[in-house]
Amino acid sequence: MTSNATAPTQTTSALPVSLNGVGRAFPGAPRELERLVLRDVELKIAPGEIVALLGPSGCGKSTLLRQISGLDRPTSGSLTIDGTRIAAADQRCAVAFQEPRLLPWRTVARNIELGLPRGTDRAAGRVRVGELLELVQLTHAADLKPRQISGGMAQRVSLARALARGPGVLLLDEPFGALDALTRLTMQDLLVDIHRAEPATIVLVTHDVDEALALADRIVLLGTRFDRPGATISRILEVPGTRPRDRASTVLARLRAQLLDALGVPSHHGR
C-alpha cells in the first residue's frame, strides 16, 4: 500500500527514548509475595526508530510500554524522553491499544478530534483532522459512527487519534492483534506509510514475529531466567533493509528462525 496523502502540518520531531536500569515490582501481601515483572532494562531508542518488543505472554511488554508513557512508574531505574525524565503521563507520547476504544456516540472525525492538543483552534483542528483522515484513508468515513465501520477501520481511527497532536513518541500495544490476517497485513503496510509521513519514534508491542520483522528497525526480546525473577532484555536483533520489506525474503526467513529459536518455538511452526 502506498499513500498519496501529503504530510500533515502539525507534527512534532521524533524524540529519543532512554531506559536506564528500569525495574517494576507489584506489591504483595505479605511482602514476600511481591511480584517482580521487569528487571534492569537498559535500552536506547533513536529518534524516528521503530522498535518492536517481543516475548512470551506476561513477560512485561505492556508494562514496559506503560512505563514509557508515564502511565505507570518504575520501582527502580529511570526513563527519559529527549533527556527529560518521565515523571507522569507524558504529553510527548501517544498510545494506541489493541482495542480502538472509540466513543460510540461520536463520528469518526469527532473521535479523532479527541486527540488534538487542548486549546486547538477550531479551524486548525478541522484541517488537522482532515489531514489525518486522508493519511489513514478514511476521508469517506468521516461522518460514520463506530458501529458503521469495520474493525480495521476502527483501528485506523485509533491511530489517527493518537497522531492528532503530533507526538514525538508513538506507543502501540498490540494494535493489530484483534484483526483478521489479511486486514492485519494491510494495517502493517499502512503503518509504514504513516511513519513515512509522520516519522515519530515508535515502540510496538507484538506477539507476531512476522509483524516485528516487517515493521521494526530493531527487535527487542524480553525474557526471564529460571534463577532470577523479573523479565529483562535477553537479545536485540537489527532488521536490515528499508520498509516496505519483502516478507518472503531469505534474510527475513533467517531472522525469523533465529527469533523463533530464541523464543523456544520450533521454526517449522506457523505464527
Rank of each mutant, 00 (worst) to 15 (best):
C93W: 09
C93Q: 10
A94C: 13
V95H: 00
V95L: 15
A96C: 12
A96W: 00
F97I: 09
F97L: 12
Q98M: 06
Q98C: 09
Q98A: 12
Q98H: 03
E99V: 02
R101C: 05
L103W: 12
L103I: 14
L103C: 10
L103V: 15
L103G: 05
P104D: 13
P104T: 09
W105S: 11
R106I: 04
T107E: 09
T107N: 11
V108M: 10
A109M: 08
R110G: 08
N111C: 08
N111P: 03
N111V: 07
I112T: 10
E113F: 01
G115E: 09
L116A: 05
P117W: 07
P117C: 12
P117G: 13
G119T: 08
T120E: 01
D121S: 12
D121N: 15
R122C: 04
R122L: 14
R122T: 15
A123L: 11
A124W: 04
G125M: 03
G125K: 13
G125F: 01
G125D: 05
R126P: 03
R126W: 10
R126D: 15
R126Y: 03
V127N: 09
V127A: 12
V127D: 14
R128Q: 14
R128S: 04
V129S: 06
V129E: 11
G130W: 14
E131V: 02
E131M: 08
E131T: 05
L133H: 09
L133N: 15
E134K: 01
L135Y: 08
Q137R: 15
Q137W: 00
Q137S: 14
L138G: 02
T139M: 08
T139N: 07
H140R: 13
H140G: 08
H140I: 04
H140N: 12
A141S: 15
A141I: 06
A141Q: 13
A142H: 04
A142Q: 14
A142D: 12
A142Y: 07
D143V: 02
D143W: 11
L144T: 04
P146T: 11
P146I: 03
P146F: 02
P146C: 13
R147F: 00
R147T: 08
Q148M: 07
Q148V: 00
I149F: 00
S150W: 11
S150C: 05
S150T: 13
S150Y: 06
G151D: 01
G151R: 06
G152P: 10
G152N: 07
M153H: 07
M153W: 03
M153D: 01
A154I: 01
Q155V: 05
R156H: 02
R156P: 13
V157D: 06
V157A: 00
V157N: 07
S158E: 09
S158C: 10
L159E: 00
L159P: 10
L159F: 01
L159I: 12
A160H: 04
A160R: 11
A162N: 04
A162R: 05
L163C: 03
A164W: 06
A164H: 13
A164V: 06
G166L: 03
G166W: 14
G166N: 14
P167W: 03
P167A: 06
G168V: 04
G168T: 10
V169Q: 03
V169T: 03
V169Y: 00
L170G: 09
L170E: 05
L170W: 02
L170C: 13
L170V: 09
L171N: 03
L171M: 12
L171Y: 00
L172E: 08
L172V: 07
L172I: 04
L172M: 15
L172N: 05
